[in-house]
Amino acid sequence: MFELTMAKGSILQGVLEAILDLVNVANVDCSSKGFSLQALDTEHVVFLSLFFPSEVFRSYRCDEDCSMGIAIADMVDLLRASNDGDIITIKVTDQNFEDITITFESPDKTKTTDMDLQLVDARSHRLKISEWHDMESEYQAIFCMPSAQFMLNCKSLSVIDDDVVIRVNEEVISFSTKGKSGCVNISHVPNKTDNPEKASVTLTHMRGPVSLTLNLRYMKSCAKVSTLFDQVKIGLSTKLPLMVECKIAEKGYIRYFVAPKITE
């Protein structure tokens, strides 16, 4: 049996809302440690991997590991029907592995709404990626910045063109674009520390200058999720997809991997 409860408007609900513009269907794996989800965007440019540790939920129980495909858009639609103050329960019983049950309970416990959502096949959304601690060392540059700043950069650049070039070296982190109507270049002088301050842009890992071109549509989507958190961490490599990460509590995360554009 798997069962988690959360208050309406909790972080999981916020994140599911925010990933909807890229993701329809997701693979969800539940274990005693927590709730993880993997999904590909419809054009297969972005891979999303998130993990919510059990302690971020109001209550969490998972007797046996389980894996299921969920139509996220339908689930979010159902969750939207809850009222302020409701406690939301998501449950899968061992006897029935064809759907999940979502329950809303009003704060005064006088009203309960039960809904069943059919599970779907989402196995094609599963990709093979290395353990994060092995992968992190492959990134040439990793920096952190306030999420609001990241969103602002993406918005300012998308006025001019569809693509952004992110360049990182020891002295500067820049976001730039060039279009028919002009160009924009936003430069940040980074701090260099392992303990980034919330308000600043910090270069945490630097193994050599790197620059990548990315479609702003995907970057804006990443930025949207990141604004649910104070800080966003961005990793660049010439051999791996761009990584955009937000931390959830001590051990949790949301990671977007975005395939950069390549010049032939």
Partner: peptide, 14 residues
């Protein structure tokens, strides 16, 4: 302009 590869160019199917 530059081309957009898919993410499966980096990560294989599980």
């Amino acid at each position: 302009g530059p081309k957009q590869p898919t993410i499966t160019n980096y990560f294989g199917r599980a």
